[in-house]
Simulated scan of single mutants.
Amino acid sequence: MKTFCCERCQTRVFFENTSCDVCKARLGFIPAELTLGSFDEDESGDWLRVTGTAAFRRCANHVAPVHCNWMVGAGEAEPLCLSCRTTKVRPQLAKAENHGYWRSIEAAKRQLAYSLASWRLPFPSKAEDARHGVAFALMEQTDPEKKVLTGHDNGLITLNIAEADDAQRERVRAQMREPYRTLLGHLRHEIGHYYWDRLIRDTPNIGKFREMFGDERADYGKALKQHYSAPKADWQTSFVSAYASSHPWEDWAECWAHYMHLQDGLETATSWGLQLDHAVPGGTTVRAEVIAADATDVQAKVIRHWLPVSQFINAMSRSLGGRDSYPFTMPDAVLDKLAFIHDVIGAGVRGDNPMNFTPRPAPQAAIATQTIESTAA
């Protein structure tokens, strides 16, 4: 995540902020610019940017409980922002706690959408691309006999809203003996499945994928059953997590999530000017650096830049009484998989390899996205 400053008074502000504490300017994130704009509100309720550039209006979800701070172009017919319009099913709001869960999930999804936009990866809603778009169903489990499982199916990402409950998520993490479980991590993993369909399925990348991750045509249900009954004992030699060893699709999604982790972490560290003078005793100074889209030595850059930063973050977390924020190791096989994901994203964005998206028609009035409330599961 980049650092941001108020466009009026240059005070540091943050991605989630809706107003500047110093000059009281209204703040709104502008996806096309990947920046927080500063605005004044006139008597008619219009938002006027202090820089005098194009007019914007707030996402329709700026109100409670979501409090979205993203902006929409004043001329757009779509009332929701780039991120909010991907929500197809929202939690039932009759329960007070669901308000907070929805707000937390949308906040995490905006961070996800920021990263995808910064890489210039298409992130269309189902309303924009019915065949190849993405939609989120935020579901509550109300019947113990009917489980709501977080997962991906042909562009539809279902998320059990209990994952937004910190205490519940921690209980599940402990029960599953997972070293790491976060709301944003879930979204990064599931969006990895979505981009497998967009970047790997039926493309020239499929052969290389099978060489590195294995043949995804292996029975998925059988593979998961085998994993939960008897996980691979030596998974640490080739996988970033035990779950990644269950099936090639899960290996890809876990590596995709970790690629997003490290790139977002490096962007934050770089934006703050993080420099580690003692990353390696007696070694040279390490300065945080994002892995550029055209980098050809990804494995070396992960070792040179991300590993020292992650070690520093873990040391800080321990000193503050917390667990390691990044409790993972990366064998050579995982470094190679991360490099492959980096190359696939770059080739797709540059147009060197095809991506599975429906070509956009000529500009026309957008169809307003319909968001429905989830029913009892």
Rank of each mutant, 00 (worst) to 15 (best):
E254D: 11
S245I: 00
P248Y: 03
M212K: 09
R210L: 06
P248C: 02
K232L: 13
V240W: 00
S229C: 04
E289R: 14
K232W: 09
H258P: 09
I206T: 10
V286G: 14
P231Q: 00
W196V: 12
A218M: 10
Y228F: 12
I200E: 09
P231N: 00
R210D: 14
P281T: 12
D197R: 05
T285E: 08
L224E: 08
E254K: 01
A230M: 13
G207A: 06
G265W: 09
G221P: 06
T268I: 12
H278W: 10
K208R: 13
A288P: 10
A288I: 11
C255A: 06
D264S: 14
R217F: 08
T284H: 03
I206N: 05
F209M: 10
Q226F: 10
K232M: 13
H278K: 14
D202P: 14
W235D: 02
R210M: 15
G207F: 06
Y228R: 04
G283P: 06
K208G: 08
P281C: 13
T285Y: 06
Q226R: 15
G214R: 13
F239V: 00
I200D: 09
S246T: 03
H278F: 11
S271G: 07
F209N: 05
I206K: 08
H247L: 04
T203G: 04
G273F: 01
H258M: 06
